[in-house]
Design a protein around this nucleic acid. Structure first.
Lengths: 216, 216
DNA sequence: AAGTGTGAACCTCTTCACAGCA
DNA sequence: TGCTGTGAAGAGGTTCACACTT
């Protein structure tokens, strides 16, 4: 049983994504090298954390010059990106869905939102932010035909499980779920929940606690 | 130095928020008791995890009947909620901002989005999803006057730091940041980043890896 | 002198395992 | 018998500390 080479932790992958954006910004400001402590301050973590994360890439730095930004970005891409741009399907073209479409529209070479789905007849068969909107009935067939591998769930809680089931029947490998519920998926499908309600409750809780500490 | 009673972990707070929603649903289905394994399956975690989390509340279950749902919900509320409904300010009334307004509008007694802010003159001084929209220039003063304690940042990356600075000058204790950058805040302010880009990259990465394992 | 690469310590969160109980 | 409550073990992630490099 060969051990997978890509044994990078969940959190590390998220940080690599962030580093890449920070590096892009540095590059645009004319920089070509960077030290771990510079990236750390921008990413809000420690220099040791940055160096650990870079150990996941096949990139070496030098004590004198730090890391070459181009090499770091190439290293991150070779880990995070697949060979071809990855096709993404979006279920739910409400405010959130449109925000997601606008956000990814054209800006990300590694992802293309290939198809959107909605049950509202006034939305289907229109093109929104450059993306064709299909009726949900066609979700399974479009996902299968287009070979869409990642699904984004931006529908109300009550419809989430059904949409997830259809994405899975269409053959997606991963799902990003914005609905405030937990969904069931077959083994072999990866789910990431973005629970905004829980996040806001965390903020409120820790904000209150911090202020209590300050006030004492 | 008295130890704080509320020493609950970040993740536990997020799960308590989820449990509360699941319990509400059970209650609506006529249930009055629940076992840890039932909650676990709905929350996507283990029964042991659920019981650990419940140890943070002052609620006891019985081996025969499990936990009383009403008591659990009261316990969660006494930990998560502040005495009065918490006031929240929202910066950025684009698609994402409107989705957030729609989502929290009226549905959550513990949070009220009291004020929204935008720089677009066609949006200011209108009422959107029941929330008054002010010009960003007034952010600091409105936040201060209304005693808003939590800020949501739903503006483009380039404007995020400025909006955060203003929220902090207005005196917020916590921030939820949807912009794809890390922001600097004074000590005593809690920040939660919801990095959608990083989340999508995680999904794509682990989906690809799962499928590689399956395919071998 | 200052920064990288990394073994080891540390810390946090999760799961196990079992005593106690209805 | 089957579940709760929890000490203890385990897993995972972060930080320390230092040899090595320029």
């Amino acid at each position: 049983m060969m051990k997978l080479k890509n044994d990078i932790s969940d959190k590390a992958v998220g940080r690599l994504s962030l580093y890449r954006r920070l590096l892009q910004e540095l590059l645009e400001n004319g920089r070509s090298q960077v030290f771990s402590h510079e990236l750390a301050i921008r990413a809000g973590c420690t220099p040791a954390q940055v160096r650990r994360d870079i150990m996941n890439l096949e990139v070496l730095g030098s004590p004198a010059k730090g890391y070459e930004i181009q090499k770091l970005m190439a290293g991150i891409s070779s880990v995070l990106d697949s060979d071809a741009p990855q096709k993404v399907g979006l279920a739910g073209v409400g405010n959130l869905g449109r925000a997601i479409l606008a956000y990814f529209s054209g800006r990300t070479p590694q992802f293309v939102i290939t198809a959107a789905f909605d049950s509202d007849p006034t939305k289907v068969n229109r093109v929104i932010h450059g993306c064709r909107c299909y009726p949900v009935d066609e979700l399974v067939s479009v996902v299968r035909e287009e070979n869409i591998q990642v699904g984004i769930v931006a529908v109300p809680a009550a419809e989430a499980q059904q949409v997830v089931d259809e994405f899975c029947r269409g053959g997606v490998l991963g799902l990003m779920n914005f609905a405030p519920v937990r969904v069931r998926v077959p083994v072999g499908v990866y789910v990431e929940n973005l629970d905004v309600m829980a996040a806001l409750e965390r903020v409120a809780f820790f904000a209150r606690r911090l202020s209590a500490v300050r006030g004492e």
